[in-house]
């Protein structure tokens, strides 16, 4: 494989129902940095039906070029349809790096492609960087860092002899750039050739999950509850505080497994990664899997009865005490504060 023939940083610009997902913009921000370090271009891949007009927003957020594949076959995400198109684009254009959001779509599509392309894929990266190779000064290397062992260990992965180098990144981890209105870029149309004999999966229907509107990753303030909250009534107290601060409630895995909260509210390794300005952890002991999902928050307040709870190791302000008393009192106090 001629590694030098592979150039540019590609981003799979995920859309759902024609709406570009925030993670695509976050990836463009990171891709821009990587491409600048390499002296290469940022190319966004936009697949869907009647989505071409969205290409401009990808340019404004950092892409130099947008390749659009527009077809009724691509209206809803289906693995094989999308994999065929991306495989054709990637083999024709030879990208150096391809980034995907670590969403249910990206984590379904990227491994399928990695296997078809026989290349490496690194999942759920939290850091991506271009560094100088240790034994070859002047030679650059793409390094992908991710948590392993449930967040207990960080591993930096390289893909030295295969191209493209691919990774998925969880939503909320990378920072998007400021929108640059009027930024110039090219938009190229790609005509996919479908092998329909391989289409074995048909979408019959979709039912919105009620809790799905709860996008805790977008909240500026999260009041999050764990085992110490006990039950629904306990979460009502947290909701009161969240309302008062203009935020949302979130949950640890324990309360999701107990059936008290829906999975959509779960923070952590098997839930969502969040970085609100304020994270109030109530009755959460702080398993490493939970910490992995919230420790990048701007300011962390933890309230827990157990002064040895691991949550205090990441809290900026730790309070040893009973959340069931403190949370309602704090809510009342803040209401007064705001009224003044």
């Amino acid at each position: 494989m001629d590694l030098k023939a592979y150039k540019n940083v590609y981003v799979f610009a995920e859309q759902r129902d024609g709406v570009i997902q925030p993670v695509a913009y976050e990836l463009l921000g990171k891709a821009r940095e990587l491409a600048d370090d390499l002296g290469e271009k940022v190319v966004a891949l936009l697949l869907g039906h009647q989505v071409r007009e969205k290409a401009a927003s990808l340019v404004e957020m950092g892409a130099d070029e947008v390749i659009v594949a527009d077809s009724p076959e691509l209206k809803d995400y289906l693995t094989e349809q999308y994999a065929q198109v991306l495989y054709q684009i990637i083999t024709a254009n030879k990208p150096n790096i391809v980034l995907y959001g670590a969403t249910t779509i990206g984590r379904d599509l990227a491994p399928r492609l990695a296997s078809r392309l026989r290349t490496g894929l690194t999942a759920d990266c939290t850091r991506l960087e271009i560094a100088e190779k240790e034994n070859e000064p002047g030679e650059k290397e793409f390094r992908m860092t991710r948590p392993a062992f449930g967040g207990n260990l960080m591993a930096t992965i390289i893909c030295p002899n295969n191209r493209p180098q691919m990774s998925t990144v969880r939503p909320g981890v990378m920072q998007k750039r400021e929108k640059e209105t009027g930024r110039k870029g090219t938009v190229t149309d790609f005509q996919p050739q479908f092998d329909r004999s391989k289409f074995k999966v048909k979408l019959i229907g979709k039912v919105k999950n009620n809790a799905a509107n709860a996008d805790i990753t977008a909240a500026k303030v999260l009041v999050s509850g764990g085992r110490g909250v006990h039950d629904k009534a306990g979460f009502d107290k947290l909701q009161g505080l969240a309302d008062c601060l203009g935020g949302m409630v979130a949950s640890s895995r324990a309360m999701v497994d107990a059936g008290v909260m829906d999975h959509a509210y779960q923070v952590g390794q098997t839930g969502k990664t969040v970085r609100p300005d304020l994270y109030v952890a109530c009755g959460i002991s702080g398993a490493i899997q939970h910490l992995a999902g919230m420790e990048e928050s701007g300011y962390i307040v933890a309230i827990n009865k157990d002064k040895f709870a691991p949550i205090f190791s990441v809290a900026d302000l730790g309070i040893v005490g009973d959340l069931h008393k403190i949370v309602p009192m704090l809510t009342e106090r803040l209401k007064k504060e705001m009224a003044e």
Binding site: R118, T119, G120, L121, T122, R143, P147, A148, G151, N152, L153, M154, A155, T156, I157, I158, C159, P160, N161, N162, E295, I300, K307, F312, S313, V314, A315, D316, L317, G318, I319, V320
Partner: peptide, 19 residues
């Protein structure tokens, strides 16, 4: 295709105040 370049325990954050 992928190799582990290095692995390390996650850097521990300096804990804040506990009251």
């Amino acid at each position: 295709p992928t190799k582990v370049f290095r692995s390390y325990p996650k850097a521990l954050k300096t804990p804040g105040e506990l009251h």
